[in-house]
Design a protein around this nucleic acid. Structure first.
Lengths: 210, 210, 210, 210
DNA sequence: AATGAATGAGTTTTCATTCAT
DNA sequence: AATGAATGAAAACTCATTCAT
């Protein structure tokens, strides 16, 4: 964990804020997220980040241990968010197919809502320290396992085919989702929700065939 | 364009060769592909590349204009290869569903066969110069269009659903394929061909539902 | 503009100071001036400069954007100095011939006083970036124009011949002055002031003939 | 001396020839002269020279010992030329003032005719090896001495003032001449001959005053 | 809580020259 | 007479991080 002196890092990810009113660490994370997504982690210098956030280097190193730490925070935030959304949907009532459809569409919408995070997270894992890479992988695995448990439940109930292993289904689907950041464009013909529905449709149809 | 003076760059990508007998540019490309995949483009220094290829820096700059150029050659090679395989399958006879299934499985197998290329190509596009990025995107678009034309053909013949736009189907599927490099492991339970068959199964089932 | 953060760059050019007590940017400029004059801009490495100034490369790049920037500062300083001296003399009272004589002798003395600057400035203009070359040329043109206006005044008052265009006179004279750096030697028989008087004599005599 | 295998290096400077028909060393010297004047010696790479001359590096190193050698040849050529022109004028008949006027105007015209040589020679001396620098300085001194002997002759005959030492006069005048390359432009209002006449006028008037 | 000067190891790239052919 | 691959030393510049204040 990076932030040393400042309590409320649990700031809502729904209001990333680069403006001057926002707190310094918040602003740094918002700015770093944008810059890492635009230019890549290694191509973004600490100087650029602090300039864009309108703080000094000293201030940045007061709140974060290192540039790596900034990246780790970004990963932590997005994983936390995705996990909580999936957990929320998984624990709802209703037929498993319905829950999978909802989860599948939701992860698309929330990925598009945080497209910079998605860009970073599928491209920059190897730039994290090995220890933090492991943490991220572990959390991601937990996430995949939760999703997979839904698939498995459907297969066991006989509403999903079991021709394809649940593992493969999960990797197949999240590959599609992660790659949204390489082609999605806000000016495109389809809304995030429509794309989410199409993706969920493709997944569900594949699983529900006789 | 990278290689300046010597002929015969059309070396078979199936035998990347880092050994001393191989020609200097060949060795450099093989070594660079491995290192870029392992550590990322920006984290790999030219010094490491030339040391691993057992040549001097001067020799490298004799054959390649820049480190970027090395990356561009890697992209060019993989795009060329994938395009020719898809074109070969697309022009075969047989029902469209069969051709799509073959293409879908084949791209999985060939991606796994060249996993380093896949790792690089989905992670390093932004490290290319803008001009070269455009070239890569253009070639990739042509590739997607060829695949999409197969989907469209199936939709027009009524063998594929048209609930989901062909564009979305293509991005959906290639997302899955590109992400193979993040999870595939040779020691895994399934062979590349089996994974390809499962992926093709998921795609075809999704498309062929009534 | 070179120096980024610290104040007071208006240090007196009459006391170039390479000693350790002097401020870092001051020392760098003093050392660079000496080395550029001795060996030429391109033959002087940044490493040599920082070694001679007893600072690290990082420190130098903290204060100056580039090696070019160092050169540009040297140019800016000498131009500023020369312009202020000429302006001072031009605005004095007395017959125009007297003012021209004073200016002509003074520029010789001040060129000799800053011989390294003179060496650099007549040899290194092309090593500046095009934008900075233009700035230097513009400032130099303003300088020449001020001098020329004195010549023109003398011609209009009838105390100087107008057989030769004032432009030519100015270029003729400043050519002589700039070349002092190629032959002047402190051990020579004549003092700077004596040389200045001879130069002014040659100029004035040429202009005052009937 | 640089050229190893090829006799007639005494090619006329009046026909610098970069065209393909010209001999290889001739072409190299012509091209190098242009490039050194345009971009400076250190900024011009051997590769650029051989590319522009349409030969290979091997060919260049066949004819010249080094890049330095190319520069030395350029110096040698221009000094030889200037010396022969001055000697020719000095040995003519007629009043000394007339000979000085002719020499003074002629050096201006011939400098303008070979402006690239002038640019190089006043800017690049320090890029020559010490040994070759000495040779150039010696030859230049001989040249100055010949010119000075004309001045002295005039002073002894009482047609020139001796208020100003002949040495100073010579340096004064050749400073003006060498600087032609910094301001002369073919599109300017005055022809080379007119400029030469003005320069000679300024010199002679300064010397002939009572 | 914050500054910003300073570090020093690292980066990519250039280039005159050599040499086997 | 000419080639062009290869060398190896040196170049300018970057940057994450530290630390005295």
């Amino acid at each position: 964990m990076a932030v040393r002196t400042h309590g409320g890092m649990g700031m809502p990810a729904v209001t990333p804020d680069e403006s001057a009113e926002s707190s310094v660490p918040r602003r740094l994370l918002a700015v770093a997220t944008r810059l890492f997504a635009e230019k890549g982690f290694d191509r973004t210098s600490v100087q650029e980040i602090v300039d864009a956030a309108n703080v000094t280097k000293g201030a940045m190193y007061h709140y974060f241990d290192s540039k790596d730490d900034l990246l780790a925070e970004i990963y932590a935030r997005v994983l936390r968010l995705q996990m909580s959304r999936l957990a929320e949907i998984a624990r709802q009532d209703g037929p498993v197919a319905e829950r999978v459809r909802r989860a599948a569409a939701d992860v698309v919408v929330s990925t598009i809502d945080n497209l910079d995070d998605a860009t970073i997270s599928f491209r920059s894992l190897h730039q994290l320290s090995p220890a933090k890479q492991r943490e991220v992988r572990d959390e991601r695995r937990r996430y995949h396992e939760l999703f997979r448990s839904l698939i498995t439940e459907g297969q066991e109930r006989g509403v999903f085919t079991d021709r394809v292993p649940a593992d493969i289904v999960v990797d197949f689907y999240f590959g599609s989702v992660h790659h949204l950041s390489t082609w999605y464009h806000p000016e495109g013909a389809l809304s995030p929700q429509q794309i989410g529905d199409h993706y969920a449709d493709l997944l569900l149809t594949a699983l529900q065939s006789a």
